[in-house]
Design a binder for these strands. Structure first.
Lengths: 205, 205
DNA sequence: GAACTAGCCTAATGACAGTAGGTAGAATAG
DNA sequence: CTATTCTACCTACTGTCATTAGGCTAGTTC
């Protein structure tokens, strides 16, 4: 009867017996997964993350700096993912087709990984973060420039497309859309926006 | 030297000397104002609200139930305001004009009262709240029905318009749009969406 | 003027994020 | 193979929240 069993005070898990040897990437990955399960990065809690990793909350600070730093890391991962998926979605298409394909890819990502998506949609707080966001803009700009659109018209197109897609994603995630298939509504919304925006543009070269 | 001056421990304001006789409406009004200043209802804190009202935090519970209850009250107020403004904006217009006018009114409200707007955009958590949200839908449905649109097509129109407008508002509030005037982009986005959505609809009766 | 009510209070709890400083297992140097 | 260093974990603590319990009193009502 000398086992190191339950101590005295509260029912916390016993201290670390085997070292897990976590590192920052592992912590960020776990946090992103947790944010996905919670549905957004705002609901993320260090206490819950620590419990999930079977360590104590302060131990996270060996890897993370702060909760905001963790959110930032998740945002950067989300932005990297989004850029990859958008680029991939655009490849092999041109003009409206490429943009439609990008829009679908973004919605799919938001449905698959809501935590990462909401993090990526956060307003950037430093230069690196801002640059990651500009990376997404570049994907749009490239597609638009190949379609002969640039300058203020391009800015307009990007704003409109982002607004429509992001707005739809937010409302859909909130459960605001009920029965008739949201996917079909999304298709119509995006195609209407694209048709209208590209109407007065020169045809694809 | 027997003034009731500074006690012993922390530097809190002296206890209430004159009764303010606050009531729920006054508290909710102050909370909404605070949420507007913070830019959103998520940032609202009972501690800060209490300080603003020159009372102690627990005293708020005489009027409010909980922080979530307060957010709910703000949301209901926002939804009532929105319904009023939308109805007013639609009056005297028909079809696309009415919808354009509604969209402008919603954006203006979000710019004027970001706290109330973000609260109104929260997912409803009970029947009354849901009904208030359905009130907004009714404004759209009325306009659309007078234009000869109903059923799935109407659902589609509402989803698309809400997505575009809400998405734009969210991104604008986040400061995502920089120099070229966002108002002009908003006009173009909404008019494009409306044109596309109403294109195949019968002309106004 | 006695009783009631409403609006305020203090005190305390528990859940957080975050800080300070200790400890031991693993990697590395001699 | 031992000695040192590093680092991933720990406990203990602080401050800030929301929230609950229960007490006091100014103002109203009878």
């Amino acid at each position: 009867m000398n086992e190191p069993v339950s101590g005295s005070k509260p029912h916390l898990a016993p201290p670390q017996r085997v070292r897990l040897r976590l590192d920052r990437p592992a912590v960020v990955r776990a946090a992103a997964k947790l944010a996905d399960e919670r549905g957004s990065v705002e609901g993320l809690q260090l206490a819950e993350l620590a419990a999930r990793l079977a360590i104590r909350t302060p131990s996270l600070y060996a890897h993370v700096g702060s909760l905001d730093d963790l959110r930032r890391a998740i945002a950067l991962e989300g932005l990297r993912d989004l850029r990859d998926r958008m680029t991939h979605a655009a490849s092999g298409h041109r003009g409206a087709d490429a943009l439609m394909s990008i829009a679908r890819a973004v919605r799919m990502y938001a449905l698959e990984r809501p935590g990462l998506y909401t993090a990526a949609a956060l307003p950037p707080r430093d230069r690196e973060w801002e640059d990651a966001l500009l990376g997404l803009k570049d994907v749009f700009l490239t597609v638009l420039s190949r379609y002969g659109i640039s300058g203020d018209h391009a800015t307009d197109c990007i704003r409109s497309l982002r607004s429509a897609v992001h707005g739809f994603i937010v409302l859909e995630a909130q459960g605001d859309f009920g029965q008739p298939d949201p996917a079909a509504s999304f298709e119509r919304l995006v195609s209407v926006v694209l048709k209208g925006l590209l109407a007065d543009a020169p045809p694809a070269r």
